[in-house]
Design a protein around this nucleic acid. Structure first.
Lengths: 130, 130
DNA sequence: ATTTGTTTACGAAAGTATTCGTAGTAAATA
DNA sequence: TATTTACTACGAATACTTTCGTAAACAAAT
C-alpha cells in the first residue's frame, strides 16, 4: 500500500488545485476571480466545488474567520506523479520513455529546457552505474 | 484549426481503444474477454460502450456479418498527443519539459530507453539550429 | 434599526459516464 | 422443427460531475 491515497481530482478540481498551488492559499472569492478569466461559471459553483474538495480531503480550510481560507491538502508533485503514472499505464502501455518521446515530439521546448533534460538524463545514468 | 477534432475519450473508452490499437480489430466478445482480465463488467456493458464509441466516431465497424467487427477510428499517436497536450496545459503549466522531468524522475527507464531519448534530443537540437 | 453586500450552506437540476436487464434476431444444434 | 446459443439493440437505472438558485448568517453602511 502506498503512502498517499489514490487521489483522482476531476477536471474542475484540478483547475482549483492549480490556482492554490500557485498562490499558496486563498478564499473562494480569490480563487473564483482567477478562474473566471479562463472559465465561465458562477461564484457558487466555485464555492460548491471547493466545499466538496474539502470533504474529499483535497483541500484544507481555516474557518476561524467568517470568510474561510482554503489551501491545497495534496502536493503538486505527488499529484502530478500520480496523474502521470496513470497516463503512462493506461495510454502509453506502461512505458515512461514512450511518453517522454511523444511529449518532446510536438511541444517544442526551448534550448534551455532541452539542456536541462539532457543534464538530468546524465544524472540518472550516473546513478544507475553505481 | 487542427486537422483532427477535439477528441476526448473517457476512461473506459481509452481501455477499449488500447485493446483495439494492440490487436488491430476485433469483435465485442474479443475485446470484452481481454478487458475482463483487468476489469469487472458485463458483456453488454462493453457492447454498449463500443456502440457509443461508434456513434461518436471513435470506432469504425463492419456490420456485413452478424457479428460486427470493430476497429479504432482514431490513431494511437494522435490520441496520445492530444491527451498529453491537455495534461501539459492543465497539470504542468504548459511546460512539456516539466512533464518530461517528472516522468523520468519516478518511473525508472532502461539504459536503452534513456539512450533513445538522448538521441532524440540531439536530433531536435539539430533541427532547431537550421 | 433597516438596508445592503458578502459569505456559507443546502438542495436540487442538468449533464455526462457507466452499468446492466430484457427483448428481439439470427445462426447452430438437437 | 424446436431448442439452445450468441449476438445486437434499446432503454433505463445508477453514479458521478458540474452548475446554480435560494436561504440563512453576518457585517458594514445608511
Amino acid at each position: 500500500m502506498s503512502a498517499s491515497k489514490n487521489i483522482k481530482p476531476t477536471e474542475s478540481e484540478l483547475e482549483i488545485l492549480g490556482v492554490l498551488w500557485e498562490k499558496g492559499a486563498g478564499t473562494v472569492r480569490e480563487v473564483h476571480e482567477i478562474l473566471e478569466k479562463s472559465k465561465d461559471a458562477g461564484y457558487t459553483t466555485t464555492l460548491k466545488l471547493m466545499q466538496i474538495m474539502h470533504e474529499k480531503g483535497l483541500l484544507k480550510r481555516d474557518t476561524s474567520s467568517k470568510t474561510h481560507v482554503y489551501e491545497a491538502a495534496i502536493s503538486k508533485e505527488n499529484t502530478r506523479q500520480q496523474l502521470l503514472n496513470k497516463m503512462i499505464d493506461t495510454v502509453f502501455n506502461g512505458s515512461a520513455s514512450q511518453l517522454v518521446l511523444q511529449a518532446l515530439g510536438n511541444h517544442r521546448s526551448s534550448q534551455e529546457e532541452l539542456d536541462k533534460i539532457k543534464q538530468y538524463l546524465d544524472q540518472i545514468e550516473q546513478q544507475q552505474k553505481k
